[in-house]
Design a protein around this nucleic acid. Structure first.
Length: 290
DNA sequence: CGATTCCCCTGATAGC
DNA sequence: TGCTATCAGGGGAATC
């Protein structure tokens, strides 16, 4: 489940590997992954475009192309961007590079960009939830996908004051607020659980009820958890892979996520699991008491 | 207005 | 063994 640290890892890898390349052609067996424009138009217009830069905004990967065009890729739950070489036989994808040979991730490649150096950029996605949007930079930037996003938590101007201001009139539970991309960008289910545990805050507490000390703890935990996950190249539950098909290493650092009925690392109380908005909440009922 | 439910999709798991 | 039912989960849409 790629969140900020995983998406940033992919973006950093892609920057090293494919900036400056041209896209010669594309292949897909699942054209609906491209949400706009229609696939035929996309196929025509992306041809011979040059990759000028690659950025991250929230959980979106933004690929700047020449002539002021923008390619947006959202990996959703199980999307992976891989750089390597494949061949298509009977509309089946087969890997040609050692590192990726035998990896399950090859079985779910649904979109391939052929680059001008013989390499390819492939979008693998077991669930087919990932989406690709292409258009003029102006058009894409004004979509709700990008326009309504909250601030980036790892930038310098994301101060404690700014963080605190997000909660003033926020009656929803703090966990929901942390995961709302239009409040704050890039945090999903794994890291919201981890951040709240690190800050010793109950996920069910209303955001506006946090006192100044709790807000500060949360702010510090947020930076610490996300930065550490970034250093470990992300978490590989749900089979997250980087652009070489390699897993992240933060999984071994997880304190609560998917640790139901296992002892809390601070107090040995068994970790609980509950539901919130259809998502799993993991927390220590003792450390993270209201 | 907020809260809940459904939907997209498919591998894993449980129940029979 | 092998079938069927259920579930996870980001994010958007529909509904309560």
């Amino acid at each position: 489940m790629p969140e900020l640290p995983e998406v940033q890892t992919v973006v950093d890898d892609l920057k090293k590997k494919i900036v400056g390349r041209r896209i010669l052609k594309i292949w897909s067996d699942t054209p609906k992954i491209v949400q706009r424009p229609n696939f035929k138009q996309f196929e025509e217009e992306i041809k011979n475009s040059k990759i000028e830069n690659i950025r991250r905004r929230a959980k979106n990967i933004l690929i700047d192309l020449n002539n002021n065009r923008l390619l947006l890729i959202h990996q959703k739950l199980t999307g992976h961007l891989l750089v390597g070489r494949w061949q298509i036989k009977n509309n089946q994808v087969q890997p040609r590079d050692k590192g990726i040979l035998g990896e399950k991730v090859n079985d779910y490649i649904h979109l391939i960009f052929y680059l001008d150096n013989g390499q390819m950029l492939a979008l693998s996605d077991l669930r087919k939830f990932a989406k690709v949007i292409f258009g003029s930079a102006q058009e894409i930037e004004s979509l709700p996908d990008l326009k309504n996003l909250g601030p980036e938590p790892l930038t310098k101007d994301f101060t404690l004051a700014k963080f605190s201001s997000l909660f003033q009139e926020e009656k929803r539970k703090i966990k929901q607020v942390l995961m709302d991309q239009n409040v704050i960008s890039g945090i999903g289910n794994i890291y919201s659980n981890e951040i709240l545990w690190a800050a010793k805050i109950c996920p069910f507490k209303s955001a506006f009820q946090l006192n100044p000390q709790e807000r500060k703890n949360l702010y510090l935990a947020l930076g610490k958890v996300l930065n550490q996950a970034l250093r470990f190249r992300g978490t590989s539950v749900d089979n997250y892979r980087d652009t070489a098909g390699q897993p992240g290493k933060y999984e071994q650092k997880l304190k609560v996520y998917r640790r139901e009925n296992q002892p809390c690392f601070r107090c040995q109380t068994l970790i609980k699991r509950a539901k919130m908005e259809g998502r799993s909440v993991y927390y220590c009922p003792k450390c993270q008491n209201k």
